[in-house]
């Protein structure tokens, strides 16, 4: 079972929900931090990191001895990552999408592949909870390939909880595609609702059942509740604004550990997700 925790708007509490649900469920789960641009889950889960490895994406390396400057490579490249100037071939590594087209079309077999560092992936654990996170290299623009690498490391035997990045574009899609359930964390403000609508639109493109957590549920204008009702989106949990929770979060602590009454609520949240993800009616909730 793969649960992806997403939101549209940033700062609504994705990481809070993902880490607390993981800690409440304990041993049978794994937490994948797929917000690779700004990974934060480790700050709250505090896992023991056992291994960190570099992740690269292939980019072309031209053998100028063999190259005849025929321009076939620059012609096929849709990303302007190769330019032929006179007899010289220039590669712009940061523009390359690693499609391998240049290598296939080169008649002289003058192109081999080297790597561009996307970032790192770390593996660790805490109280039997398996933890994996991706960390995009500063200056690297493409996060989806790194997110896909983090996803590929998932253990199918466990309940996988994914902490997704904010937004609605390709990085979020990479963190949601193929999940069994999308848990949307929102807040009842105009910004929260506006971005939630976009995010729900993205989930519907993927056709995955979803439900809501309304964080800081007593601030703002409450319009999100009417929206959820009209769209048939189940509200699985509400978290009222509580300065204690804000302070616990600010110090990097887990709510389920500092306020134990929340543990059962997060276990209950998981039970609701499980029921919705496996039932037919649940599956229809978000797939309009």
């Amino acid at each position: 079972m793969i649960i992806s925790v997403a939101s549209g708007k940033g700062g609504t509490g994705k990481t809070t929900v993902a880490t607390n649900m993981a800690l409440a469920l304990g041993e049978k789960v794994e937490l994948l931090d797929c917000d690779v641009e700004e990974p934060n889950a480790h700050l709250f889960l505090k896992p023991q990191i056992t291994r960190t490895e570099k992740v690269e994406t292939p980019i072309p390396l031209i053998d100028l001895e063999k190259c005849t400057a025929c321009r076939k490579c620059s012609d096929i490249c849709r990303f302007n990552a190769i330019a032929v100037v006179g007899k010289k071939v220039l590669v712009f590594p940061e523009l390359c999408h690693s499609c391998g087209g240049c290598m296939v079309v080169c008649p002289e077999k003058a192109i081999v592949e080297t790597g561009r560092e996307l970032g790192t992936i770390s593996y660790g654990h805490r109280n039997g909870i398996r933890f994996i996170n991706g960390r995009l290299r500063v200056g690297e623009a493409m996060s989806p390939p790194l997110i896909r690498k983090v996803r590929a490391a998932a253990d199918p035997e466990r309940v996988t909880i994914i902490d997704a990045p904010p937004g609605t574009s390709c990085p979020v899609i990479a963190a949601m595609n193929g999940a069994d359930f999308i848990l949307m964390v929102t807040e009842p403000t105009p910004f929260g609702l506006h971005d939630l609508r976009l995010a729900v639109g993205a989930v519907r493109v993927l056709g995955i059942p979803c439900g809501l957590v309304v964080n800081r549920s007593d601030i703002g204008d409450q319009k999100v509740f009417a929206y959820a009702e009209s769209e048939g989106l189940p509200i699985l949990m509400t978290i009222p604004f509580d300065r204690r929770i804000a302070e616990i979060y600010s110090r990097g602590k887990a709510i389920v550990e500092e306020m134990p009454e929340w543990k059962e609520r997060f276990v209950d949240l998981y039970r609701k997700i499980e029921a919705l993800a496996t039932s037919r009616s649940g599956a229809s909730q978000c797939v309009k």
């Binding site: 990481t15 641009e37 934060n40 700050l43 500063v138 990097g252």
Partner: peptide, 21 residues
């Protein structure tokens, strides 16, 4: 930024980005 562990962590990466560019 905001005074939380994630705020400071993420701000540091943005400062790295600013100096990178």
């Amino acid at each position: 930024t905001e005074p939380t562990v994630s705020g400071i962590h993420d701000m540091e990466r943005v400062v790295d980005l600013a100096s990178h560019f």
